[in-house]
């Protein structure tokens, strides 16, 4: 949807979204945020919500590679942008190193903040392959976790960074 002049309130919009590398046609009420469209109209409930006001980070997804909050992103503004959610992170049945590390090191307890945290960490490692623990804490400071006390999240991201670097080295 892209209009230059004001129309009356529409009850429904039709759009093509690019989610996890796939083009998906979807129709939704235009007041909906990306969070609502992902969860309610596309059935992608891996993306969570804890406040819907930008105060917790549970709904973080990647848009054009950047970690953003889907609860404060209008879905009508997402056409043509590459959206990545937790459902698209594993390659087939092969978990991403972050997923492996969060699972093995206790980075995930109840699991509710995990999708947002993992996606945020992915954006970090995509840009900075060797972040220090302090840098990880800073990058993850927009993801509230009520279970872990964060230490095991930081350890998981460090472990995954090492795995990604090794995989990179082997590939080259």
């Amino acid at each position: 949807m892209s209009v230059g002049t004001v129309k009356e309130v529409q009850r429904r919009v039709h759009m093509t979204l690019q989610v996890n590398g796939e083009e998906i046609d979807v129709s939704f009420a235009p007041y909906k945020t990306l969070l609502e469209v992902l969860r309610e109209d596309l059935g992608l409930t891996g993306t969570k919500h804890g406040c819907e006001l930008g105060e917790c980070g549970a709904c973080a997804v990647l848009i054009d590679g950047e970690p953003l909050l889907s609860c404060l992103t209008l879905a009508v503004e997402c056409a043509g942008r590459a959206i990545e959610t937790i459902e698209g992170l594993a390659q087939g049945t092969q978990l991403h190193p972050l997923q492996e590390a969060f699972a093995d090191l206790g980075g995930s307890q109840c699991g509710y903040c995990t999708p947002g945290a993992v996606m945020t960490a992915k954006a970090l490692l995509d840009k900075e392959p060797s972040p220090t623990p302090q840098r990880i804490k800073e990058a993850m400071s927009g993801n509230i976790c009520r279970c872990t006390g964060y230490q095991q999240i930081v350890e998981s991201v460090e472990r995954a960074a090492g795995c990604c670097r090794n995989a990179e080295r082997e590939a080259t």
Binding site: G4, T5, V6, Q10, P30, Y31
Partner: peptide, 29 residues
């Protein structure tokens, strides 16, 4: 889930166009 109220949405392609819409819609925009 907290929901946004209904609204009209427009995406002008220039500052001039945006300014024109604001002028026309007044404080409601």
């Amino acid at each position: 889930m907290m929901r946004l109220p209904w609204f009209k949405y427009c995406a002008p392609k220039s500052v001039a166009e945006a300014a024109h819409i604001l002028a026309a819609e007044g404080r409601d925009a």
